[in-house]
Amino acid sequence: MTVIADPRLGLVTALIAIVAVAQLHGLPAATAAFILAAMLGGVTRAGWPLARRLVHVEGFMLLLFVMLPLTMPGEPLARIGPLSVSAEGIALAALVALKVSASVLLLAVLVGSMEPARLGATLHALHVPERFNRLLVMTARYVDLIRAEAQRLRESMRARGFRPRSNRHTWRSYGHLAGMVLIRALDRAERVTEAMRCRGFSGRYPHAAFAPPALRDWTASIAVAVTGLILLAADRL
């Protein structure tokens, strides 16, 4: 469930809003952006899946949050042994955390998760090059299938007593697993190509044309984009 039903408008609006949020320099504007994005999330009643996306912090983001307060020069707030915690460092870490979280929320609320065919049609409507689009749809289509295949191979490894540990046997076994998955992927690609040619594929997918976006979508899209730009302007002035 997203705020904007039309996927083309949703994607473009998300891009504008995230570009604006990503360039904020001040804590007040970044806080406002985060609160507004969270309110949008509340409107859509996204709930748990949305919270889980937020919790998923990349490894080096954690590193950034821990190290910035300790390494940035500035007014010391507290001392931990030889290290001092600077106010400037905490402010920068908070700023980055707010902007990153607001961007994740905006992407989830405005674009959500699309099924591959719809994503392909959306990008086609936005004039993304045809070959790139075809590559994207192909990858999106086969991720789930190949994941199931890899899962079966891993289960059969487990059934034969394989336990992953930090040793060369494990790495070689995973190498063989990867090799097997890649060989099967190549065979599958061969079959898919033949099947497409057999059915007269002429180099482009027939995408159904989208209906023009509803008035409600335009309103929501303009409201979000303009709010983002106003925040950016307020931040810079």
Partner: peptide, 13 residues
């Protein structure tokens, strides 16, 4: 294109 697409899916997995 199918070869590159399916390989990308495999590496992703």
């Amino acid at each position: 294109i199918p070869r590159a697409g399916v390989l990308a899916a495999a590496v992703f997995v």
